[in-house]
Design a protein around this nucleic acid. Structure first.
Length: 401
DNA sequence: TCTGGGGTCCTAGGACCC
DNA sequence: TCTGGGGTCCTAGGACCC
């Protein structure tokens, strides 16, 4: 395993300098950017808290709002209990609620990303408000100064604050960026990672969610240091490949290479009913809407899909998925709807709280759709009738980014 | 906390092929 | 007619992340 590396192979992990940039309560910061009066006040950004839409959740809460107990992903009704809207509070001690405005946040995010790409070659954009940078060429001598400049540059050019973590690998850098939020800057040098992580609860490690944390607790493993010292065989036995990963992460080891994210693997749209319903015609109507949405998004991205699926969530929270694959990739909104509805038929008698439609097995090369006749004939799933629309759709490629 | 929406990856069994 | 083993694709579910 050790010894000479092939040319072009990744450096040993300890030689890397990885930077994780994590925007501080990004949506709330964006709202403040265009509405400076919100500075220093509790801000909650979410959806579905308007009258009659009682099923939304908090997307982001400012730190002032978190002080009231408002958290990300909390049902909006619960958030309003903890922190009433300022309009409804008589003592003036309320929160400023704003509806998610993705188009605006994407504008701000684009400015942040521009700063990152100007700063270094390799950037992995994980989400709208988070990215990893491979800044190995900067070296450990200058890593801290680099990160400080990066933060300042983001503030200057995008107008929003970021926290930055620097470490010899992705998993540790991520925890470092979170360690001193907001406006944090934490550098973990090679050799320091394991001690840095040691006291943290396992739940804070990337890849340990509520389920794994509970199972680890049953094994007497509570902290990263417990996990680092645990028997690898026990972990892989219980958690499979992920056991190996979290064991490594707990020891401050992560050999994943920072690479840009590729094309999406799937696209989906989902939507919850305000109240779970057994009205199958309502189910069908929602699936038609979702199918149209997802097909439109796929087309906008120039994606062909080979698999069409649905998700049906029954109370209390039972998730069912069904999918059907076509003989070859298509761009055909009508087919998405037809297949989704036919998969939905199985749930005709179900009470449903939430529905989703998904396309996957994506291909982005227009040539991928080259010869549909060949398989359309031998299939039986895709009929002649559907074929012409699929081919016509190809002409829309390139209309969008 | 009775849970929104958009994703990723992994696992496991079955079908099918050579 | 009985048979081993490998590889790939498909579907469904689970866990996790932001």
């Amino acid at each position: 395993m050790t010894g000479a590396r092939l040319p072009g192979a990744p450096l040993p992990a300890t030689d890397w300098v990885v930077c994780h940039v994590d925007m501080d309560c990004f949506y709330a910061s964006c709202e403040r950017l265009r509405e400076p009066a919100l500075d220093g006040a509790p801000v909650v950004v979410g959806m579905g808290y308007e009258p009659g839409e009682g099923h939304g959740a908090v997307a982001t809460a400012s730190y002032e709002a978190r002080a009231f107990g408002v958290e990300s992903a909390m049902p909006i009704t619960k958030a309003l209990e903890k922190l009433p809207r300022i309009e409804d509070a008589d003592d003036g001690d309320g929160g400023h609620y704003r509806t998610v405005d993705m188009a605006y946040y994407k504008e701000v995010a684009a400015r942040v990303k521009a700063v990152l790409h100007d700063a270094t070659e390799v950037v992995r954009e994980v989400s709208i408000d988070e990215a990893y940078l491979d800044v190995t060429e900067v070296g450990w001598e200058d890593a801290e100064a680099f990160a400080r400049d990066l933060k300042a540059e983001i503030q200057t050019r995008a107008g929003v604050p970021a926290s930055v973590g620097v470490a010899p690998n992705m998993a540790t850098a991520k925890i470092a960026s979170d360690f001193d939020k907001p406006d944090g800057l934490v550098v973990v040098r090679p050799g320091e990672a394991r001690d840095f992580l040691a006291p943290l609860p396992v739940r804070e490690l990337h890849g340990v969610g509520p389920v794994t944390a509970r199972k680890l607790a049953e094994l007497g493993i509570e902290t990263a240091s417990d996990l680092a010292a645990a028997d690898l065989a026990v972990l892989t036995d219980r958690f499979g490949e992920r056991g190996r990963d979290i064991h490594r992460h707990a020891r401050g080891v992560d050999e994943r290479v920072v690479t840009p994210v590729g094309k999406p693997k799937s696209l989906s749209s989902e939507s919850a009913f305000v109240e779970a319903t057994d009205d199958h015609e309502e189910h069908r109507e929602k699936v038609r809407t979702l199918a149209a949405e997802v097909a439109e998004r796929a087309r906008a991205k120039g994606a062909l899909y080979k698999t069409i699926g649905i998700k049906v969530v029954e109370p209390p929270f039972e998730v069912n998925t069904r999918a059907r694959s076509l003989p070859g990739p298509v761009d055909d909104p009508n087919l998405v709807s037809e297949v989704a509805l036919s998969l939905l038929a199985e749930f005709e008698a179900s009470t449903v709280r939430k529905l989703g439609v998904r396309v996957s097995n994506l291909e982005f090369s227009p040539a991928a759709q080259a010869d549909l006749t060949a398989w359309a004939d031998e299939s039986g799933t895709v009929t002649e009738r559907e074929y012409p629309s699929a081919r016509r759709d190809q002409t829309t490629f390139g209309d969008f980014d």
